[in-house]
Amino acid sequence: MGRLMTRTLLLLVLLGGLTPAFTSDHDEALRLKQAGEILPLKTILERLQQPGQILEVELEHKQGRLVYELELLDEQGRVWEFYFDAASGEMIKKKIEN
């Protein structure tokens, strides 16, 4: 399965629009959300408060914690990367992608 398809499916799972039964990554993301160990992606998107189009979302383990990584295309055509602690919703870092 391509990376874009995988990320799209993960996004749907985290938003609650798809019942995952086909990969362990998606099952794990749903389990973490239902257990209250990570915030729903919807909550993270509300905290982002940056105009633009979401290009990609990933849930990754980084430095011992779960992190949402979002890529956003802003109104000037720049691609931004945002990193949020998946448990607390705290923005960890943002940067313009080169």
Rank of each mutant, 00 (worst) to 15 (best):
D74T: 04
R47G: 01
M5T: 15
T6M: 08
R31N: 07
T43M: 04
Q34L: 12
L73V: 01
Y83W: 09
S24D: 15
H61V: 12
L73R: 13
L18M: 08
L41C: 14
H61E: 14
V13N: 10
L66Y: 13
E97W: 06
R31D: 10
P51E: 11
E60M: 03
L10N: 07
Q34F: 03
D85S: 04
I92C: 03
R78Q: 15
Q76G: 08
K93M: 07
G17V: 14
L66F: 08
D74S: 08
T19S: 13
P20F: 01
K42F: 00
L66V: 14
L32D: 09
L9E: 15
M5Q: 11
E97V: 14
R65I: 05
G64T: 08
T8Y: 06
L4Y: 10
T23D: 12
I92K: 03
I44T: 15
R7F: 02
E81L: 09
L12A: 09
E69T: 08
D74W: 07
L11F: 05
Y68W: 03
L55T: 08
A86N: 12
M1G: 15
V13F: 03
L48V: 13
E37L: 14
T43F: 01
D27G: 12
T8S: 13
L55G: 07
E60F: 00
Q63H: 09
R3M: 09
L11E: 11
A35D: 15
L45Q: 04
P40L: 10
L72G: 00
R7C: 09
L12F: 07
I92N: 04
L15Y: 01
G36D: 02
R65L: 02
L4E: 14
E46S: 13
L15W: 00
A87K: 13
I54A: 04
L32T: 07
E71T: 02
G17T: 04
A35N: 10
N98L: 11
V57E: 09
G64F: 00
E60I: 12
L45A: 01
L10M: 13
S88Q: 03
S88G: 05
F84L: 05
K62I: 14
V13M: 06
I96F: 09
L30F: 08
L41W: 02
G52H: 01
E56T: 05
H61W: 07
Q50D: 03
R65S: 12
D25S: 13
